[in-house]
Structure formats: structure tokens, C-alpha cells
Amino acid sequence: MMTPASEIPAIDVTDLTVAYREKPVLWDVDFQSPQGVLLAIVGPNGAGKSTLIKTILGLIKPAAGRILVLGNRYRPQTRLIGYVPQRTSVDWDFPTTVLDVVLMGRYGHLGWIRRPEKEDYRLAMECLEKVGMTDFAHRQISQLSGGQQQRVFIARAFLQDAPIYLMDEPFAGVDAATELSLVSLLRELKNKGKTVICVHHDLQTLRDYFEWVMLLNVRRIALGKVEDVLTEENLRRAYGGRAAFLMGKGADEKESWTS
């Protein structure tokens, strides 16, 4: 019997191993994400979270393993994946405007050589409006705050209009208010039936923001619904002894750590 299209995993990674020189960064990882969910990839520093999404995108060559995107091998030309890199991975002093950066989300649709036209500009402005940055359209990007930079990246992702989004730490270095508005933007994507997969750092907010989670530390520790995966046992396996703190069980506990 054929699997219905909506039940094919958005991302289906099998036995993935990635190594920098001899050191494995990802070891024999299996990872399936259902369609239309908000999924967080969580794990300690050096767990291979960014490497995993870069490998899915084909930016890093795996040593072994198979990657399927909506049931097929991934080629960028299919435009199935929208990518939001880490905000700090680009040079914000680059001589360009906010609108131009958002327009880059349209480049995949345009293909080689063709320049953006009126319609593309209109769509880009629409996406800027969604993230509340219309007034900034013609600003030089170096004038943006961290939160505004991230909004611009999200607007660019909106414009890519892909069924699946891979985002590398979309909440890194933004203030609490911006974080909440970004979350609602991600929910909006999800409500449109998109699959949104984020590298995430903060276990405290995991339960509020995401419904699915993969715990990763070079190997896959656990994958599933947040409430099933977020057990002390799993966290200890991913993070070692610091798990209790990371769970943030009691406010008192947290106080004693921060003071």
C-alpha cells in the first residue's frame, strides 16, 4: 500500500555520519520529522546540531547515510527547503539594504541571471510587513539591532515560500519581546502547514515554543513529542550532570545557580 503524501516524513535521515577529519561530529543519526510541526533540535555545544541541518541542505558532505526530503533525494533546485542561517554567519556591514536582503529569498525562484522584478519587490515588501519591518525597507543593514536582523532573516525565509524550513538558532541574541514575536511568526508558518525545524538552545522555553524535539549529542538521544522526550533520564544522557539545572525545575534552584 502506498503511504499517503501527507504521511511521508518532511525530513528522513538514516544512518547519517559526518566527520571533520577523523573526529565524528554526527554518528549514525536517524532523524525523521513529520510534516507540519514545529520541531526543535536541542543538545549541548558541539553536539552537531548546525552540522545536521547543513548536511541536510547539502552544504556538508556526509561520510555515510541517506537523506530524503519529502521522500526524495534533495536537490536545491526543487526549493523544498527554506534556510535561515545563524544571524552571526553573515557580515552585517555588507553594503546593501534590508529590502535587498529579503529579496534574496526570491533568488531561488528566479534562477540564474534573471533579476528581481516589480512583483518580486511587492512580495518582499509583503514579507517585511509580516515581520513588522516595513519602515526599515530602505535602511542599510548595519543599522539594525540583533532582533531586527533576525526579523529580516525570517522575512527572507517567508519569501522563500518552501514547505520545510531549517533555522539555525533563530532566537540567539534577541530580547524576550522579539523572541515571542518570532515564535508567533513560526507558528504562523506551521499553521500554514509548513514544517519548521529549529536549532534551539533554551530548554526552559522548549515546552512553550515547540511540540516536537530531537535531543542530539553526536548521536541521537531521543526524538518525539516534547512531553515524551523531555525526561530527566534523556536530558542526563544528552547533557551529562548538568541536566537538573537545565530542566529548570524550581525557581529556587535557578536562583542559587545564577547568584
Partner: peptide, 22 residues
């Protein structure tokens, strides 16, 4: 001028350029 868009993207954000197939 022909590859202005591609040069701009690959210079500003090589990751996205690769992900989009440029």
C-alpha cells in the same frame, strides 16, 4: 552586471547561496 544577483548572494551569505543552488 550579468551575475550581479549571484555575486551579491554568494558574497553576503554563501550558505543560503549554496542552499538555493547557486
Amino acid at each position: 552586471s550579468l551575475f550581479y544577483k549571484e555575486l551579491k548572494l554568494a558574497t553576503f551569505d554563501a550558505g543560503l547561496a549554496a542552499a538555493l543552488g547557486f
